[in-house]
Amino acid sequence: MTFHVLSVCTGNVCRSPFAAQLLAARLAEAGIDVEVTSAGTHALVDSPMTPEAAAMSRRAGVDPDAHAGRQLTAELVQASDLILVAAREHRARVLQLVPRASRRTFTLREFARIADFVARARTVDPSFTFASDDPAARVEEIAVSRGLAEPPATPQDDDVVDPYRRSPEVYAEAERLITVAVDGVARALAATASGGRGAA
């Protein structure tokens, strides 16, 4: 069955569509059957990505032109196997809509941080493999490891800065943070395709 990932930010015209497009491309390269979509907690419904965010996608080799802003709903959350949000405020909104989604909702940087912790812990036991080749099993592992991983220096370090209507420098920082985090998420989910070996 197709694995469903939902990327969430505020307006759904900057951070979440870029993260979704980049993650979809990374996972397609890894051969993971996945559908990655995006939505906003206060979406600019039917709006395209901002020109600056669209340029981020093009630099990453993905096409932003089909994007149209979409409002986050409980139905979208319920249909998703993993929800990756830009900042903690978005996680709070997801859980207001669907409290039971807590275990599968992370900020993008939080998921990548915990996945890195799990990968490093695995080096203690190189024989470790996953019992399941299902990305949902990896999400569950990340969820149960949430309290074990070293926390960020400040809570804000798990967020991606909002570049909307801000300077090119802020867009560049958002692009950098999202790219690094998406690469970490993709490594973690792609590891399921090899039984947990190597890819993470």
Rank of each mutant, 00 (worst) to 15 (best):
F3L: 00
F3N: 00
S7Q: 08
V8R: 01
V8D: 01
V8P: 00
C9V: 07
N12F: 07
C14E: 08
R15G: 00
S16F: 05
P17K: 12
A20M: 01
Q21F: 12
L22S: 09
L22Y: 15
I32E: 11
I32Q: 11
V34I: 06
H42K: 14
A43S: 13
D46L: 15
S47V: 04
M49T: 10
M49S: 06
T50S: 14
T50I: 07
A53S: 13
A54N: 12
R59D: 11
D63G: 08
P64M: 10
A66Q: 13
A66S: 14
G69N: 06
A74F: 09
V77F: 09
A79W: 07
S80R: 07
S80K: 06
I83P: 02
V85E: 01
A92N: 09
L95W: 11
P99T: 05
P99W: 08
R100N: 08
A101M: 05
S102R: 05
R103V: 13
F106K: 01
T107W: 02
E110Q: 13
F111V: 03
A115K: 01
D116W: 10
F117V: 11
A121D: 11
V124P: 00
F128A: 13
F128W: 12
F130M: 14
D134Q: 14
D134T: 12
A136P: 00
R138W: 13
V139R: 00
I142K: 00
A143M: 07
S145F: 03
S145M: 09
G147L: 12
A149V: 05
P151K: 04
A153H: 07
P155R: 09
D159N: 14
V161L: 12
D162C: 03
P163L: 04
R165F: 04
R166C: 00
R166L: 01
V170R: 13
V180F: 05
V185H: 05
V185R: 05
A186F: 06
G195Q: 03
R197K: 13
